[in-house]
Write a protein that binds this DNA or RNA. Sequence first.
DNA 1: CGCAATGGGGATGGCATCATCCCCTTTTGT
DNA 2: ACAAAAGGGGATGATGCCATCCCCATTGCG
Lengths: 208, 208
Amino acid sequence: MHRALVVEDQNLMRLALMAELRAGLRDCYVAGAQTLPMAKQLLEQDQFDLVITDPGLPGFDPTSRHDRLHVVETIIEAAPGAVHIVVTGSDDEEEASACRLLGARAYVCKTGLSQGELPLVLEQIDRGEFSIQLSDLDTAQLDLRFPTLTPREDEILAMMMHRNTGTKRRAVFQELATKAGINAASAERYYKQARAKLLKLGRLPEGL
Amino acid sequence: MHRALVVEDQNLMRLALMAELRAGLRDCYVAGAQTLPMAKQLLEQDQFDLVITDPGLPGFDPTSRHDRLHVVETIIEAAPGAVHIVVTGSDDEEEASACRLLGARAYVCKTGLSQGELPLVLEQIDRGEFSIQLSDLDTAQLDLRFPTLTPREDEILAMMMHRNTGTKRRAVFQELATKAGINAASAERYYKQARAKLLKLGRLPEGL
DNA sequence: CGCAATGGGGATGGCATCATCCCCTTTTGT
DNA sequence: ACAAAAGGGGATGATGCCATCCCCATTGCG
């Protein structure tokens, strides 16, 4: 049973990170805290295996290096046995190094963190590496979401729209099949279904 | 058919905001852009009814008042017919006023924005008001999420844990029943189911 | 005592999604 | 011209969640 804690003041982001953890970890339960005192309280009450912290908490100056590192240090000292990941909105390689010295095992920039990528960070940590993920706008994302689509349909459509030019659709079907552990023909079926729905709505983006 | 655009560089937050819109609006489709050029491109291609913008985009200094307002102004000028909501990580009442002068209809702080609250902002806008939502840590949240629980079970548990002391469980069942449009007995059933699952895991929080 | 609130469940039908299997036509590339 | 890729769908069983209705025992309180 894994126990994880997310310390982050933005409600939607905290819930999103908690959802990522739930999806990525098996047999875990995930707690969330909005402020440093709450986090300390939870860390006293219970033992955690994994803690994700955003140093920009209310009550501290998010632009002050000193304040931010103080938050990280306080959390790490309150749970010395846990794996610590720092998640931040602003990129800073120096701050990453400082967090590493404080005992953090990863430093991840929110701008570069997409859905499903947290497990990759955890794998890196498992291999004993310090995982740095800075912002990466080369792969800048442009999303479209349609309400009538099921998650699977949405997923294959997103992959199809983000594919590199020249990539065959077939290859994308195979990619989803491998990633999701399903049949490539099923992936193709979802794509067709999604396409049909968008056609009916008259909202088919270019590039089909 | 409502068309909405979310301009936000943090992937998880953008997806969360897009999910909020999908849940809150009927018959809509939602696009997302990670950078200002992408947003401008989308706004040229298509007409949007609603645009949500985070002024702290990559390529601009998030601490610079000038840069942030420039982003807001650029977006609003690119879609003068749309309703504009500014969503920001850092609280600032002066910035809120400046955004209002630029034509924004709401200024919302991420720290104070919980799941399901975006519809309230939209209602305020519909009534012609300028909606300001600054950070509110009086109702600071402490969340627990358990992986084996279904969304409904999670929901009723969260409501139960956040209830005011002295409130009867019955009252909470009624509250969920009203909010979700279901039977109070059903709400009770979900609570019991959730409780049973946590008991089996030996992870029942205090306060049952 | 009687009654309300709580704890602990079983069984049900409806519904959406998932994943798979099958069919066919049209377009594209070489 | 022939093969590969793509477009367009029907039908299926399994599964999980939703919402409901039903049963019971225990606890607290006036």
